[in-house]
């Protein structure tokens, strides 16, 4: 049984990585009080930018990942200008970004449909990779998987231990108070939003240059929305987000291994499982209003315009 489960668990980490990147980015954005529903669009823009860069320059997956990160941040700016500087409805601006990203990525992607990339070789970590069971699961992954865990560590540390994290949370809790003390509310929100875009772009580029590694129209397939749901599930705490991302990575992977595990359900219905699971976890968290409110940034989704 263990032999059967090792590849499943190892693949879970890979499947969880885009969710972890995008989720961490959105968590930071939301902690500053900004609700960006454009994650799906930013991931798609990152995915096509990364893929196009890797194909056109021939510089490989890392160049693609860098391009995807930059493109994601740039696309977040499209959201930030109306939503932050013009104080427009954040939910609607995010939706516009998703619609735009779906269209833009399909438009550019048309000429990249027939290409494929070599992907990325796994990078076994010396010694650790030799540990039975744990080694093949955790320490024979691609470098990007390790990077996602490093990003998690940095986000956790900044939020919990630094002045910057405190400032970010203060702006999300009470922009009026932060503004009155003299903190640059809008600057912090721009920064958090661009970070969210960069991480979503990185997650998307990972999908197209390392995970698949192909370009398929709409290949992000709702992962951006699942990442937003994961932030709610995590009650805005990075450690719970990590847990949620791996949980969902497992659910995503399940459909590919269902047959070997002896589960007989039509493929289409298995493919719907992550979306059903998203609703289930949303329900589980949201029904307990107290738990939901605990870390909810008080100004989430509300525009801020100093008088």
């Amino acid at each position: 049984m263990i032999e059967l489960l090792i590849p499943v668990l190892a693949a879970t980490l890979g499947a969880a990585t885009p969710l972890l990147f995008a989720g961490l980015g959105e968590l930071v954005t939301e902690r500053s009080g900004v609700l960006n529903l454009g994650v799906e669009g930013m991931m798609l823009i990152g995915a096509i930018a990364g893929f196009a860069c890797a194909v056109d320059t021939g510089l490989g997956a890392w160049a693609g990942l860098a391009a995807g990160t930059l493109a994601g941040a740039a696309s977040a700016l499209l959201f930030a200008i109306p939503a932050l500087s013009l104080a427009a409805n954040q939910a609607a601006c995010g939706l516009a970004l998703t619609i735009f990203g779906v269209g833009l990525s399909a438009f550019i992607g048309q000429s990249y449909v027939s290409y494929s990339l070599p992907g990325m070789q796994p990078l076994p970590i010396p010694l650790l990779a030799q540990i039975p069971v744990l080694g093949p699961i955790f320490f024979q992954q691609s470098a990007v998987v390790y990077l996602s865990v490093i990003v998690f560590g940095v986000v956790w540390w900044v939020l919990a231990r630094t002045r910057l994290g405190l400032l970010l949370k203060a702006v999300g809790e009470s922009p009026e108070a932060a503004h009155a003390i003299g903190y640059p509310v809008l600057l912090v929100r721009y920064g958090a939003t661009l970070f969210g875009g960069a991480m979503a772009g990185l997650g998307g580029a990972y999908l197209s240059t390392v995970y698949t590694p192909l370009w398929v129209q709409n290949m992000v397939a709702g992962r951006g929305w699942i990442a937003i749901a994961l932030v709610v599930f995590a009650t805005w705490k990075p450690s719970r987000l990590l847990l949620g991302a791996y949980l969902f990575g497992g659910v995503t992977i399940l459909q590919f291994h269902a047959q070997t595990l002896g589960i007989k359900v039509p493929v289409q219905l298995l493919a719907a499982l992550p979306y059903v699971a998203t609703i289930v976890v949303l329900v589980l968290i949201s029904r307990d209003r107290r738990l939901l409110q605990l870390n909810l940034p008080a100004s989430l989704g509300k525009p801020f315009l100093p008088g």
């Binding site: 499209l78 109306p82 013009l86 427009a88 516009a96 269209g103 399909a106």
Partner: peptide, 27 residues
């Protein structure tokens, strides 16, 4: 010979510009 996905691109732009212009109703 342009991908028909250009429709989605215009849809997104249209909504962005609309939301931006809407900001000037109250401000």
């Amino acid at each position: 010979q342009l991908p028909s996905a250009i429709t989605g691109l215009f849809q997104g732009m249209l909504l962005f510009f609309l939301l931006g212009a809407d900001a000037f109703i109250d401000n």
